[in-house]
Design a protein around this nucleic acid. Structure first.
Length: 496
RNA sequence: GGCGCCGUACCCAAGUGGUAAGGGAGCAGUCUGCAAAACUGCGAUGCAGCGGUUCGAACCCGCUCGGCGCCUCCA
């Protein structure tokens, strides 16, 4: 039974979907005016995992994640670069899909854009005006927070408190400083849509209310996003949606914590952010391996708390993953005996149960990963005693299946996993000799066939106790980033 | 000023009333021609500090110290 920390109630609530076995969830995506950083990656990954886990536990999930493609920052960016807003948004939506794809984040079921929902936005604004919850000033329409009694219930704030500290620019036309724009009249040169209040564009919050109703209905199960969206964005969404429909909006509000750098929030204003593509570009590892490292790192802390990003953290994630992939490599080898696999069932069952208990406990991914580590340890011991081919297959499948809800272990990386950095430039060696090439020379990756041949030669030499030659071949391959592991039966396995 | 979060070993990180998971790093050992991997063992008598509640607290309460977030665009 899944429990989720619900910002609305301030505690963990047992998750029960409105319709059994069906989940409707909406997550606030990004404003597409720039490349995404790790903070965006964490948020996307957290809700991707929530969706995967709900599916793993037998739910049909309708997952809506929007793109905000009308916004001041987009207009500004387009202006700076002398291109259209569409050019900016198209570029960064594409970049979003590229970056998140590399991270193994699946696309949402529906990814609506604000600009494609103008009719709904205008209609909703009209409804709020009709109901007296909004008012018009010149070409602008504002939501009247004092007319909505529940205002502040999500963020646990009182209007009076907000007034006291808010450094809001005083806009004389607003009835209350916290009133927010539903519709903004457009200045010349800005994107504009026709409306009953004149040409303009929607405020930030209204799009999510309009798009969620359109795609999920007035009341749905889960609404998510980053911590920083609790106020004012989600508070305002609730006011708009509940105000208009008179019904409950989203039942469970889930918010992820921030990625930090040296204990400080990663943000553009502090200039301490790393974009996802920057990390992939700078990585010593292939794209697939880097994606896996990042996922493991981002899931190594429970989603609700802060997470500190560092090179060391990434290295630790890599080392931990090496252990799994070492095991996967061995599991792919043929089994040693046909004896009943003693204790295998119990290990798998235990892992499955602890994994689910961890995930049910508010998506406790670090504890879930610990369960996987437990199975890794058990499997290594079982292999030591000789595990049948079928048993190996079953363990591998279990990792595949549980890993799927975390987005881990998915690609068949058994042979693509990199244990060693590719040697570039220094210490390159030619077959059979020890010629060092100059710095900056890129070593051509060795073909599998060549590696196999050399290993056969080496093992022949070892049989003849010619360890000098054996070690030479090991060195030669090592210079190309190939690690040889000798097995007790005189044969060897290798990895890159 | 208002609201809120956090402080667990060298590092990361679970645990939220019953006597400290897991990973990384390290050390020692087994195996091995060597190496790697794997396995085994070692590692916080204590969970920022001080009080209190309790048979019993890292977990509950109070205070103190330290770090951070939101209240303004923000995942």
């Amino acid at each position: 039974m899944l429990k989720l920390f619900n910002t609305l109630t301030g505690r963990q609530d047992v998750f029960e979907p409105i319709e059994p076995r069906k989940v409707r969830m909406y997550v606030c995506g990004v404003t597409v005016y720039d490349y995404c950083h790790i903070g965006h990656a964490r948020s996307a990954l957290v809700f991707d995992v929530l969706r995967r886990y709900l599916e793993y536990t037998g739910h049909a999930v309708t997952f809506v994640k929007n793109f905000t493609d009308v916004d001041d920052k987009i207009i500004k960016r387009a202006h700076e670069q002398g291109v259209s807003c569409e050019a900016v948004t198209q570029k960064f939506i594409q970049a979003y899909h590229d970056d998140m794809g590399k991270l193994g984040v699946r696309q949402a079921s529906i990814e609506p854009k604000a600009t494609e929902h103008m009719a709904e936005i205008i209609e909703l604004t009209g409804t709020l005006l009709k109901k007296g919850l909004a008012y018009q000033v010149d070409g602008d329409v504002y939501f009247n927070v004092t007319k909505y009694p529940g205002y502040g219930s999500l963020s646990k704030r009182k209007l009076e408190d907000l007034q006291a500290g808010a450094r809001v620019e005083i806009d004389e036309r607003k009835h209350h400083p916290m009133d927010f724009a539903l519709w903004k009249s457009s200045k010349p040169g800005e994107p504009a849509w026709e409306s009953p209040w004149g040409p303009g564009r929607p405020g930030w919050h209204i799009e999510c209310s309009a798009m969620s109703v359109r795609h999920l209905g007035e009341t749905f199960d889960i609404h998510g996003g980053g911590m920083d969206l609790i106020f004012p964005h989600h508070e305002n969404e609730i006011a708009q949606s509940c105000g208009a429909s008179g019904k409950e909006f989203a039942r469970y509000w889930v918010h992820n914590g921030f990625v930090q750098i040296n204990k400080e929030k990663m943000s553009k204003s502090l200039g301490n952010f790393f974009t996802i593509r920057e990390i992939f570009e700078k990585s010593d590892w292939s794209e697939e391996v880097t994606g896996e490292i990042l996922r493991y790192f981002l899931l190594s802390t429970q989603y609700h708390g802060p997470l500190d990003f560092s090179d060391q953290a990434l290295k630790e994630a890599k080392s931990a993953l090496n252990g799994f992939y070492d095991l996967f490599g061995r599991l792919a080898e043929p089994g040693g005996n046909a004896m009943p696999d003693q204790g295998l069932d119990r290990s798998i069952e235990h892992c499955r149960a602890t994994f689910r208990a961890a995930m049910d406990d508010d998506l406790n991914t670090p504890a879930a990963i610990a369960a996987l580590q437990g199975l890794r340890s058990d499997a290594n011991k079982l292999l030591g005693h000789g595990l049948s081919t079928e048993g190996r297959q079953r363990v591998r499948e279990e990792f595949q299946s549980l890993g799927d809800s975390l987005g881990l272990f998915q690609v068949n990386l058994d042979k693509k996993w990199q244990f060693k950095k590719e040697i570039v430039g220094a210490g390159a060696v030619q077959a059979g000799a020890t010629t060092v090439t100059g710095i900056g020379t890129v070593v051509t990756p060795l073909s599998d066939a060549f590696i196999e041949t050399r290993i056969t030669e080496r093992n022949e030499a070892r049989r003849n106790k010619d360890f000098i030659k054996g070690d030479e071949i090991r060195k030669e391959l090592a210079a190309h980033g190939i690690l040889i592991e000798d097995k007790p039966d005189g044969t060897s396995r290798w990895k890159r």
